[in-house]
Each structure stands twice: as structure tokens, then as C-alpha cells.
Design a protein around this nucleic acid. Structure first.
Lengths: 291, 291
DNA sequence: AAATGTGAAGACGTTCACAGCG
DNA sequence: CGCTGTGAACGTCTTCACATTT
């Protein structure tokens, strides 16, 4: 029952890296929220370095990374002091430091499974190569695609996962299979030694706790934006720019469809539904609670 | 200076939808974290419905969605009571309710800008269509691609954005341009009336506050996983499965590169660096602070 | 004088544990 | 008796504001 970290969630919060009594050296105790922002700082720093800067203030770096300066300073303070009071941060050592923390001082080999529509595009995505990764292997279940060359790499059959993962020393995999195949393939990857998975399939993977899973669901991202669109148009009282009815035949929900009793004590949303649709029993002039 | 919501961040937290005194009806006061999980619940519910279920317990739905049951119940409680004590939740009305909240009761038209490698794949991504969206327009700056048919839709030039966005009633756009073009294109989209953007370009967009921006950076996702790989291998004291040196020529950072004085009072990370690399001045046997 | 680094405060999110309902 | 709905406790993250340092 592994908890999947998902785009934009607050997620399983907490510090990462506290020692439980193992034999290795101490690992820095970075808040997960900070870890998630380090790549963005790194990108901004690289950009600044390329445009001829040597140092940057917390204000400057923060705005380049899209956060506020207090947050940035707090984040960087977890890495140790790379700033000079009255001046700012030295870019070069800070880049080195963040890359090291992120494990990017060495290039990491990544396997990609599923070379369909999305997988094919990911295999050719230049951003992976330019930011510390090497697509070291491509896999697909479809034998007619095995042998195909994508970006100079031959597609291999998923049955070869154990062998290739071992030979290439791969610990990170990108999963771009259809939803139905994802769990099985993930199990195979983990059995072969993969310990981190970036999952593009719209399923929740069930994997051992020591395996890190991040999920990217493109439709989910749009649905969250859709919520905000709905909210915005509801607040301005203007008709939505939606089109044709959805598959469900969908009249407005809420009122008519509420099971008896559900509207008795109307919580936030039921209240809203009643108000916006003009149906339902709990309606009052300005969203006042009926009870 | 718009704050970008990014995959897995805790982000700008807070309730969404509280009325500021506008004229529209009250909009439900949903925590942003809850909103981000609703799409996942929806997916799980659809799956359950397709496999013949009518009701589901909080435990069952929670595990299908990859969260714990307390969180699920709290989330659903914000939507009103769709559960029956002793029984569970009725799937059908719950689906209707969540779709309505997310604004998915009507299909939304989406524009996609940039039909390169990634954009092309996104244009053909079936998940958008099956989960409430219709790619209504494709744009590119490259005139040699204008007119090309992708999935039955002709690519148009970005100069046509204002016209097409107005005609199709588009409020959501997906940005898959190169980094250098993203800000300009985003400005054009916003000028044309787009109010929500899903940004795949690795840049922080600077847009008016009323525009919602979500950012998906594929390399960032891998970098976060890379951090966890680095952490895991550091804790077990085992050599990392990285390969060849990165572009920087990279010896270990930290010790030698620390500016004088930086190691004086060693914070978490500097301490760790010293310990792992065996260099630096602050080293002690088991990560004890030297001062 | 300017900008970092950081306690303290406040906001938000998660989890617990149980009252209350069916 | 089972399961939802929720107040309260707890932990994390963000923000403030200023002491500290160059």
C-alpha cells in the first residue's frame, strides 16, 4: 500500500533522511517540500549563470523560481550557508551543492517502459538528457515494436527487464504503459531492482514501501484547472465556456438527485449547488445557511 | 508574479472559493489539497462503477485512490454527506457530485500550443478525451507545421490564437512550447481570454494573479526521485548506481569548495557532506556536530 | 546599509479517536 | 454492530520580523 506522491498535493509531509540507526553516514534532514523546490532553484540558478551572473540575492533567485524570498532563504538555510549577508548567494557553489544533494553529480540511467504515444515522446524529450538523466533502455510489451530505434536506442521486450536493469545499473524507471498493464510492469521493475518509479499511467500502484513512486496524471492536472474555471465563473455569475453535454446526459446534480435527507443540514457544497442551480430545498438569498 | 503550483509541492495552501463580496452565489470552501485529490477519487469511483459496484466504504475507496480512510472521509465531508453510516458511499451520486464540483458536467474545450515532440503526444493523448476534455485547437509558431492534421485537427499558426480562442470559447490552454517561447505565448493566450494554463515548459510564467497556472516539469519529477535514490544509497552506505561524471567534471563538492568559514557551524547538509565524502573540517565519527 | 539566517507565530493539512447514526 | 462524520490533537509548511553579519 504505497502512498503515491502526486502533483500539487501536500502529500505525505515530513522530513526526509533522518537516520533510523543504520550504518551509513547521517543524511541531511530536508523537509520534503524543500526537496521538491530544489530542482526549480537549480534551473533558475543555471539560467542566471548562463546570463553572466555570479551572485544573486534571495529576492532575485526567489522571483526567478516563482516563490517568495522568505521561503527561499529558509530552504537554502537547510543546505548550510551559501550566502553572504549584505551581498547574496554565490551561484556556482550553490549549484554544485544542490546538484550534489539531488544526486545529480553523476548522470543517472533511466529505463522507460511503454513506447506508445506518450512514451515515445518522453523517450525523445531532450530535457531529461540536459538535466542529469540518460534514457538507458526502452521496453514495450508489443513484439512488433521490439527492435525499433527511438533516438538511437532499440526497444526491447519487457521480458528483458531483469537483464537490462542489472547490466545498466538502473534504479529509476518511467512508466508510460496503458493503465491495465502498469501494475504488472511495475512489479517486474521492482523485482529487477528498480527503486524509484515515475508513473504516467492513471492507476495507483501497489508497491513495497521502500520504492518511491511519483505519479503524473495529465488529465488530473486539467481537472484541477477545470475546478478553478468552474469556481471563477460561478463567482462572477457568468455562464461557463463549456460545450456540449457530457456523456452522462447530465442535468445539474444536487437537488433532484439528492437522496432524501441529504439536504437536511447542508454543508458547504450542497449549499452551493442549491444556490447555483436554483433547485434544492436549502436555497436562501445569499448562501446563508438555512438551518 | 503569479505563484505556480507545481507537482508535489505543499504550495500556496489555503481554502479556495471563499466569497470576497462578489455578486455570484457562494462557492464551496474546499481546501486546495482536497481539490487536488478529487480527480483521483473520481477515477477510482469510475473504475468501481465499471466493475459492478454500487456502494463502497471509505476504506475501500481510500485504498483504491491511494490515501488513508480518514483523509478520504474528511475530504468527502466537505462535499456534503453522500455516505450512509454502517454502509458506505453510494457511487453514482458521488460521481455526479464530484464531476459537478470539478466542472466536468460539461465537456471543456482546450487549446494546445506547441506540437513538437511532447505536444504532439499530448494532442493524441486519449486520456484527455475520456476524462472530460476536448482538444479544440492546436497551435504552433512553425509555419511549416501549420495545416498539418493531428488526430483530425489542423494545426494553426499562433497568430490565430485570439480568433480561435474566442470562437471555440476556450478558457484552458496547454503549453508545450520550448522554454524560450513560453512566456510570450502565455501572454498571447491570456490576452485572448484564456484563464487557466497547464505549463510543460521549464520556465516560471509571469502572469496576472487571476490566471491559474499549473506547472508540470518532467525533469523535476526525475530529479526528486534522484534525491531519494541518493538518500537511500547514502543510508545503506552502498555505492550509487550512477554512471559517468556529469558535465561539470564533478569531484565531490563540499569540503574543498566550501568558502572559508562556511563549515564553522555545520548545518545538516554540510555536516553530511563532510561525513560522506570524508573531507571537510567538520567531520566527526557519527555525524555529531563539531561545535 | 544591505541582505542573510532564524526563532516564533500562524496557517494549513493530516491523523486520531470516538460520538452518532443507520 | 459497522461505518460515517467530525472535533481535537498533532505535525508540517509558510510567513513574519528582526538580530546578525559582512
Amino acid at each position: 500500500m504505497s502512498q503515491q506522491r502526486t502533483g500539487h498535493e501536500a502529500g505525505i509531509t515530513g522530513r526526509v533522511g533522518a537516520v533510523a540507526g543504520g550504518s551509513g553516514p547521517d543524511f541531511p534532514d530536508l523537509p520534503e517540500a524543500t526537496v521538491a523546490r530544489l530542482p526549480e532553484y537549480l534551473r533558475a540558478l543555471h539560467h542566471l549563470a548562463e546570463t553572466g551572473h555570479d551572485t544573486v540575492s534571495s529576492e532575485g533567485l526567489a522571483s526567478a523560481a516563482g516563490v517568495n524570498s522568505a521561503k527561499l532563504r529558509k530552504d537554502l538555510s537547510h543546505l548550510g550557508s551559501y550566502g553572504t549577508r549584505g551581498v547574496g548567494y554565490d551561484i556556482e557553489p550553490l549549484v554544485t551543492q544542490i546538484e550534489y544533494i539531488l544526486g545529480l553529480n553523476k548522470r543517472r540511467a533511466v529505463a522507460l517502459v511503454g513506447v506508445g504515444n506518450l512514451g515515445h515522446a518522453l523517450a525523445g524529450y531532450a530535457g531529461f538528457a540536459s538535466r542529469g538523466f540518460r534514457i538507458a533502455a526502452l521496453f514495450d510489451a508489443d513484439t512488433t515494436r521490439v527492435g525499433e530505434l527511438i533516438n538511437g536506442i532499440a526497444v526491447r521486450h519487457i521480458d528483458d527487464i531483469p537483464e537490462v536493469v542489472a547490466v545498466e545499473g538502473i534504479s529509476i524507471a518511467v512508466l508510460a504503459t496503458p493503465a491495465g498493464a502498469a501494475q504488472t510492469v511495475a512489479d517486474q521493475l521492482v523485482a529487477a531492482g528498480v527503486t524509484s518509479i515515475l508513473n504516467f499511467a492513471p492507476v495507483v500502484l501497489n508497491l513495497p514501501d521502500q520504492v518511491d513512486v511519483r505519479k503524473v496524471d495529465l488529465a488530473v492536472e486539467l481537472q484541477i484547472l477545470s475546478f478553478h474555471e468552474h469556481r471563477k465563473s460561478a463567482r462572477s455569475g457568468v455562464a461557463d465556456s463549456r460545450e456540449g453535454a457530457a456523456r452522462d446526459g447530465g442535468g445539474e446534480p444536487g437537488g433532484p438527485r439528492l437522496r432524501p435527507g441529504a439536504a437536511r443540514r447542508a454543508p458547504a457544497v450542497a449549499r452551493f449547488l442549491a444556490a447555483e442551480t436554483g433547485t434544492g430545498t436549502g436555497r436562501t438569498a445569499r448562501g446563508e445557511v438555512a438551518a
